[in-house]
Design a protein around this nucleic acid. Structure first.
Lengths: 208, 208
DNA sequence: CCTACCGATCGGTAGG
DNA sequence: CCTACCGATCGGTAGG
């Protein structure tokens, strides 16, 4: 009684294409990934890929668009919601790191997009990155403006607090993605403690 | 009265090859950089490159080896030397960021090496990265052990302090390299302030 | 440092 | 989804 796109293929080729291509782009970069390799992993011939995508560029852009949407969704939900600023920001951190842990190839795809901007990838990618960056920045500005107004964080310029958070998150994600598995597990255990040191750096002085 | 390798070429082709190749590898990745493009920028034909290198792999490994040596040299000198732990660590940060600012392509080359490990690049690269990582880690452990013994930092496990620093530095470098120039300049102005927030997070409680 | 050239692979098309 | 094929480009070699 299940819906099947075809008799002997419960997972559609289109879906598997997305999975396989995301993984390869993430691990080998854009230029390092060939359509032949993607097709081979799907058990089909290279030209058959063109039933699912217009070109290699279009495939990458499509996957990247989906990736940023998923990322943005997770991150927004965690930062919004109830609680103190510390609770909300820690939840946001845990969500971002959880996302990176569970779906490392999606994060890897984003990294590839960022590092290869202006070279072989289309302007569309650069535009999408910039839009996401601006959107995230605005959400952070709102968050820290509110936290300052509540006296929850140190009284420094919002811009600075945004930068501090961004640096911290970028560092965590970098280690999460690039560190060798052995080191990664150790760092993962430290997330809570690293958070507390970060927050200690920006938290308001205890009122006397 | 100057020493010239050839009459009309004051900067040797070998030296220009290193410059050009570093820049291209950093900007386009390993697979995205062709020997033809390198040769073209040098004004010579592709086969002529083989007078200066054995293969594309060997060229990359050679440049990467030089890059890590330069990096390690700068970083070691800044962290050693005199002063309080805070002074030494801030000096180390400034040196690392200065290096990244002045020689962005060298840092980009390292990033490419790290992100493409285990794929098209040789095991030699992975080995070199791992050796550098271990070496840097040991220097940080010594540093934070001493800082803790002096009561200069909060009394938490050295491993945690090392992680916190590493995350902070990785985040700064990531932003330095990947942020769009407009944002980069703003962040650069914040380095000192970001440092003070970081240090505030790990500094020892003021004695009562 | 060059010309001439190699087999392999690239993204992509024609036509079914 | 396939076979058959395209021109372009890849890293690299022979020989001078």
């Amino acid at each position: 009684m299940t819906l099947e796109p075809s008799a002997d293929d419960p997972i559609s080729t289109a879906a598997r294409l997305r999975e396989v291509a995301t993984e390869l782009f993430a691990e080998r970069g854009y230029a390092g990934t060939s359509l032949a390799e993607i097709a081979s992993r799907l058990g089909i011939r290279t030209p058959s890929l063109y039933n699912h995508t217009r070109s290699k560029d279009a495939l990458f852009l499509d996957l990247f668009t989906e990736a940023t949407a998923a990322w943005s969704d997770i991150s927004r939900r965690a930062l919004d919601g109830e609680g103190t600023s510390a609770e909300r920001l820690e939840r946001h951190m845990q969500a971002s790191l959880g996302f990176a842990t569970e779906r490392p190839h999606i994060v890897g795809l984003c990294r590839v997009a960022v590092t290869q901007v202006g070279n072989e990838l289309a302007d569309d990618v650069e535009e999408l990155i910039e839009r996401q960056r601006i959107d995230y920045r605005q959400r952070l500005v709102s968050f820290f403006d509110e936290a300052r107004a509540n006296g929850e964080v140190v009284d420094r310029p919002t811009e600075l607090l945004v930068s501090a958070w961004w640096v911290f998150l970028d560092g965590l994600l970098t280690q999460q993605i690039f560190a060798p598995p052995a080191l990664r597990a150790e760092i993962e255990k430290h997330h809570g403690a690293l958070w507390s040191l970060f927050w200690r750096g920006i938290a308001a002085e205890p009122s006397p």
